[in-house]
Computed example of a mutant assay.
Amino acid sequence: MKQILKNSPPTRGIDHLAFVTDDLPATMGFYTKVLQMKLVHVRRVPFEMDRGQPPYDNLRHYFFDMGHDQLLAFFEYPQGLDKQNRDLPGGMQHVAFYVPPEKFDDLIENVKAQNVNVIGPVALGGRFWSAYFYDPNGIRLELATTRLSTPGGIVESVYQSEEEARKELETLFDDPETVDYWLSQMPLKHQ
């Protein structure tokens, strides 16, 4: 197997996530009022062949500031198209936004105040506390936080002990060498 980088990845995080809507005004209202993001850029995108971009010319492509120098974007597709199934391979199952603990409860209350049905918050084990709801496009969203007294970073918070990781990897791979290989690539929590 090829060696995986052991130090920091070359990426810093998300530049932007790009989703599809067929109702841009409703999407704008939702993300600015419910999630309190700021609309920061509006444009049209001309179609060009062989770039993997949407198959429509002159689409609206609007960007929202989701915090920490990261953007959330929406292309406005024509109405009446089939909706994507988030529970099939290749679909995006959901987007989880991290919310600092001191802002978590207030943001959930704001979401509810906008008449959005919220499931949670629920404890998911470890540092995870989450609340779930849908945007007007049917995209499942999660607000995630921690209730740990010393939270640390997001990535570090999901580190596991070797025993926990081994137990799970053994359900995926029958070969002990393959399990050991993947364990050697993971940063593990030492107890």
Rank of each mutant, 00 (worst) to 15 (best):
Y31P: 00
Y159Q: 10
R51W: 08
Q3A: 11
N7W: 04
P101Y: 05
I139T: 05
K83C: 08
G80K: 01
S149Y: 11
V40T: 12
F47D: 02
D106Q: 15
Q3Y: 10
R140F: 05
L24R: 00
N137S: 07
V40C: 12
N117M: 12
D180P: 06
D15A: 13
F173R: 12
S184H: 13
Q36V: 04
R166G: 07
V179C: 13
G90K: 03
P176H: 08
L88Q: 13
F133W: 04
L59H: 01
F133I: 10
D65W: 04
E142Y: 03
H94N: 14
F97E: 03
F74A: 04
G152T: 09
S184K: 05
M66P: 09
A144R: 11
G126E: 15
L35K: 04
L81Q: 14
R127S: 14
R12M: 06
T27C: 04
G80D: 01
N117T: 09
G91K: 03
P187Y: 05
S157C: 08
N115M: 08
P78E: 08
R44A: 07
D57A: 11
G120Y: 02
W129Q: 13
D175L: 04
F47S: 01
R140C: 09
A73I: 00
Q53W: 07
F19L: 09
G153Y: 08
K112A: 00
K167V: 13
G138W: 05
A96I: 04
T145L: 11
D135C: 12
G91T: 09
P54H: 02
K83R: 10
M49P: 09
S130W: 08
M66L: 13
D69Q: 14
D135I: 01
R140G: 10
P10H: 06
T171Q: 13
N137Y: 00
D15C: 05
S184A: 15
